[in-house]
Design a protein around this nucleic acid. Sequence first.
DNA 1: GTTAAGATCTGCT
DNA 2: GCAGATCTTAACG
Length: 197
Amino acid sequence: MLRFFYDRNGLNTVEVARGLLGHYLCHETASGLISGIIVETEAYLSNNDPASHAFKGMTGRNATMFGPAGRAYIYFIYGNYYCFNVVTGLQGSGEAVLIRAVEPLSGIELMLKNRGVKCEIRNLTNGPGKICIAYGIDKRYDGHDLRKKPLYLAENSDHGRLEIKVTPRIGISSARDKLLRFIIKGNNYLSRREPIG
DNA sequence: GTTAAGATCTGCT
DNA sequence: GCAGATCTTAACG
């Protein structure tokens, strides 16, 4: 249970995007526990953010974004991949945080099996589509309450003081100037290498 | 009914 | 570094 999140109802999306770093994403599957540390996130806002799915208002696809904070918003993209978000903000506002990369902890054998491609462990969950494949997350969990098993967020009480870096978001064609991507500086499991300097 | 675009990944050069 | 795969969604006629 993420106290910083639920004590405040996950109100401020940017705060949640920063705050999720260092905590756990867990999935209890029939074959065992899959877990990892969240190391990269992006915020998608409701106001003046053309890159957000919620920018043009509620549609069938993005309805979950407008629901209560703390639920999963999962969408299908590029004909192949799911992406996993945490809904934030006041109900009806339409904001969310995209989880872009995770550092694998337990269930690594299971993740390798789910991915089905030969790759280094550092490439197992370093991208939003990869996370969903490795974790076995799909549309079933759209709208799922992330305080509840089998898919949930968990507090890392001693992750220490993190060095957080802010950058532009990845893979979008509008609002590229906004600094709404948050990463754990120097982490080896990010979706992109950090620029030198 | 048709079309264009998309919060991506993999494999090859 | 770049192209190709792949198909759902939403907007428009």
